[in-house]
Design a protein around this nucleic acid. Structure first.
Lengths: 141, 141
DNA sequence: ATGGCAGTTGCAACTGAGTTGCGTTTGGGT
DNA sequence: ACCCAAACGCAACTCAGTTGCAACTGCCAT
């Protein structure tokens, strides 16, 4: 996925290249961290994009596998952080102080072994704590 | 915590022993699997317990550390599954077919190492798939 | 035992994320 | 250029969870 333009990515998965989608996809790729639908909507405000459309675009991206979805921080978040597909997973870190969410793409993820008879399909790991910036600012106290 | 009566548990953490709390705590301990506030409310229906009170009792139990809270399956769930305290964690399994959630208390949980400067406080692991019963019934197909 | 009060509860109204229905617009294949 | 499924905007709705407030009740001190 990295190295391909937003246009190519949309084309490659059969999604129409509308102005809103291109804008959203580029935004997510630049953000490099999971964004909530609300954050997305706030940034698109004034561009004539509806709240519902944001949800639908994000869902479409997720369905197409070009974005991954996490549930951290009380609401859903979406991220385009390379090599994304269904079932893919890496840990996500949520800062208790500033609320920021990050993908720990570089952290190895040990898979839980299934119990007898169980069929594991995907796995998510959420880590909560204080991020480096807030720690340095004494926010962890 | 195991081996102590519900009354002793409440007493031990400074919570008043009201009829509703005792009933709820006993229910959670018998359930042995995470229950959503709604499931709890459904079971207490007719007992004159308000929906808001259910939320508040669950929060109080969680604050007191006698119950743990997970976010699996789109809504919050609470479980009293022994040896519970803040920051404690074990994987939780959600069945894609029947929606049931289980604690995998017996599964070893490898901890994610923090990045430089980060301060990890708690970690949750969610596993999604098909449970043994649904697999056997062919639900995973 | 009883009096007081902080902790707890019930009710009603609210919030905020996400969904649904439907009529209109538009990308892109022919 | 034409057409139609896909995409969009709007409005109204659902559902989980929260807040404010008045009434009630464990439980501790007297």
């Amino acid at each position: 996925m990295r190295g391909r333009s937003a246009e190519e990515v949309l084309e490659g998965c059969g999604l129409k290249k509308t102005e809103g989608r291109l804008r959203l996809l580029k935004m997510l790729r630049l953000a490099r961290r999971p964004m909530s639908p609300d954050e997305v909507f706030a940034r698109l405000r004034g561009k004539g994009v509806d709240r519902v459309t944001v949800y639908r675009m994000l869902d479409a991206f997720f369905e197409a596998g070009i974005v991954h979805r996490i549930e951290a921080g009380g609401c859903r978040r979406f991220a385009a952080c390379g090599r994304v597909h269904h079932g893919h997973c890496h840990p996500h870190f949520t800062c208790r102080v500033c609320g920021a969410v990050e993908c720990l793409s570089d952290v190895a993820l040990p898979r839980v072994r299934a119990r007898r008879g169980y069929h594991v399909e995907e796995q998510e790991v959420y880590v909560r704590g204080v991020c480096a910036r807030c720690s340095a600012a004494g926010g962890g106290a």
